[in-house]
Structures are given as structure tokens and as C-alpha cells.
């Protein structure tokens, strides 16, 4: 009999797809944060699927303002709690997708972290602007096909690697930065708890495979997340005061093909001429992770 499941604070009845990665990410985040928190959620799948007026799936206080200002809104809440003497142990948590965190909201995130507010920001990285129809973001991995970086006669899909957000946030002097994955619930719960209990601005980057956007069956969400880690394309590590302090080792890394062939967004690499060269490039990215983070 394993440890009891922590309580979560998200209600069923939300409009997430069957097998939704954002729902899992929010569920685990709340397990780590506990009920004494205020959640700030920029526009995206998670926000839309949980709050169709007059309903809300959130059992903790929650606010949605706009797409690019989640961290600024969170800064204001943190300041208000301090000014009103209501801070106590209440945690302020921002949670947004890769689009809102890494692209349009990065200005606001940078400002919040530079100012050192006591808050936690969780990026649910499903590697595209999912809510608007799977468009390319700076979190979209190399050669992934999205609706604005599609594979085609003269294209292998997204030509850029993922933006390295954890490094950027660590460079802001964040006392704690960690990557995690919804494929490892207890890891995510532990890291979110640690982040919210660490004073100052802390950052969690959570990998979240999206069945609808990536093209795989909704029953495989957790399995796909684990595959990303097992192929070393998604390294799991913690950084404290800018230094990597803990790494999840992968004893026998799987070849990236196992991960790529299971998703429609990479299918073109197995059918197009030159596709195998591209797969080698992706393997090189995984090998670099193994080397740099010491995953083996």
C-alpha cells in the first residue's frame, strides 16, 4: 500500500479533453501547493476549460486577467497581501502555458522575478499554443509539426530548438528552479511544494504531453511524458541559486525514435526523404542533455 494520495483542489466537470495534460498538471500543482494559495492563470486551455461563467473548477481563489500579464497580476497580489497584512502562509502561484510564459508573458515574468516577489510560477509546457489550435511557440521542439510550422514539401516543421526557460529564470537569481513532468506525479508534487515553500521567486517547468495537439490517444498522456524523460529529450533536474543540485538519472536511455514515432506531429520524419537525418539531429539534442546534465 503506497502513500495516500494528497488532496487536490480542482473539481471534475471541467471541459478538458479526455486525457488532458493541463488538467493533470493543475491537479498535481494544487496537491503540492495545498489549499492556502491564490492561483493566477493567464489565458489558455487551462483557464478556458475550467471557468465557463458561471462555473469554476477551482476550489482555491483564482484569477484570470489577460494572456501576457499573469506574473504582473501575481506580483500585485503578493504586494497586496503584504500591504494588508494578510500574507500569513498563503502562497501566490502563477500557472500558465508555454505560450503565455515563454513568449508573450516573458516580459512580465522577468520583471516579477527580478523584483524578487515571493511567488511561484509554474509553466505547463505542452509545446505549442494549444487553445488556439496548436500553433508554434518558443517551447515547440525542433522539427515538430504545428499549424504555423507545419511539415511540408520543403519543410521538416519547426526549425528551432526549445527556448531554455529554466536557465533564463535561474539567471534572474531565482533561489529554486526545477523541471518536472506530469509523467512523474510525485516528482511534480514534491517540487511544487518545495518551490512554494522557498521564499522568493521560484520557477517550475512542467512537461505536459497534449494528446490533441501532439496526435496520440488520450490514454497515453502519462506514458508519453515518461517516454520524453526516458529518451532524455526532457531532462528532470533542480537548480538552487543557479547551480544544478539534483538530476533524475536515466539508466538506459531509449532511442528518440521510440518517442517520435508515437506522435503524429513527428510522423513526417519517418516518411519524408531526409527524415532520418533530422531524427539524428534530434538524437544529438538528447545526447547533449545526457552529457550536460549528467543523466547517465
Amino acid at each position: 500500500m503506497s502513500k495516500p494520495t494528497p488532496k487536490t483542489y480542482l473539481s471534475p466537470g471541467h471541459r478538458g479533453c479526455a486525457g488532458c495534460c493541463d488538467a493533470l498538471a493543475a491537479k498535481f500543482m494544487l496537491m503540492g501547493a495545498g489549499p492556502d494559495c491564490i492561483v493566477v492563470n493567464p489565458t489558455g486551455c487551462l483557464e478556458v476549460m475550467t471557468t465557463p461563467f458561471p462555473e469554476s473548477a477551482w476550489e482555491v481563489p483564482w484569477i484570470h486577467s489577460l494572456f501576457e500579464n499573469g506574473p504582473a497580476v501575481a506580483s500585485g497580489i503578493e504586494a497586496a497581501l503584504k500591504a494588508l497584512g494578510r500574507k500569513g502562509n498563503t502562497k501566490v502561484i502563477g500557472v500558465g502555458g508555454d505560450g503565455s510564459t515563454m513568449d508573450i508573458g516573458i516580459r512580465s515574468l522577468s520583471g516579477a522575478f527580478e523584483r524578487g516577489h515571493d511567488l511561484t510560477y509554474v509553466c505547463i509546457d505542452n509545446e505549442a499554443y494549444m487553445n488556439t489550435g496548436v500553433q508554434r511557440s518558443s517551447g515547440t521542439p525542433f522539427d515538430a509539426s504545428t499549424t504555423t510550422s507545419p511539415a511540408g514539401k520543403v519543410s521538416f516543421g519547426n526549425p528551432r530548438p526549445k527556448k531554455n526557460m529554466p536557465a533564463i529564470m535561474a539567471a534572474h537569481g531565482a533561489p529554486y528552479v526545477a523541471t518536472t513532468s506530469i509523467g512523474y506525479p510525485r516528482d511534480m508534487i514534491r517540487k511544487v511544494k518545495k518551490a512554494t515553500e522557498t521564499e522568493g521567486p521560484t520557477y517550475i517547468h512542467a512537461h505536459a504531453p497534449c494528446p490533441t495537439g501532439w496526435g496520440f490517444d488520450g490514454s497515453k498522456t502519462i506514458e508519453m511524458a515518461k517516454l520524453a524523460v526516458q529518451t532524455c529529450l526532457w531532462p528532470m533536474y533542480e537548480m538552487e541559486k543557479g547551480e544544478i543540485t539534483q538530476v533524475k538519472k536515466v539508466k538506459n536511455p531509449m532511442p528518440v525514435e521510440e518517442y517520435l514515432k508515437a506522435q503524429k506531429r513527428f510522423k513526417h520524419l519517418f516518411t519524408m526523404e531526409g527524415g532520418d537525418e533530422e531524427i539524428k539531429k534530434i538524437q544529438a539534442l538528447a545526447d547533449w542533455n545526457i552529457e550536460y546534465f549528467g543523466l547517465q
Binding site: 473539481s11 471534475p12 471541467h14 475550467t50 458561471p54 462555473e55 469554476s56 473548477a57 482555491v60
Partner: peptide, 17 residues
């Protein structure tokens, strides 16, 4: 309609998915 569209907690329970 509530002022500013504020919603009560956990009310998606009415929607049986």
C-alpha cells in the same frame, strides 16, 4: 450575472462530463 463575473468555487460539478 455577478459583479465582474465572479464565480463560486468548485461549481463545474453541475456539468456531468
Amino acid at each position: 450575472i455577478t459583479t465582474g463575473g465572479v464565480c463560486k468555487a468548485g461549481t463545474t460539478l453541475v456539468n456531468k462530463t
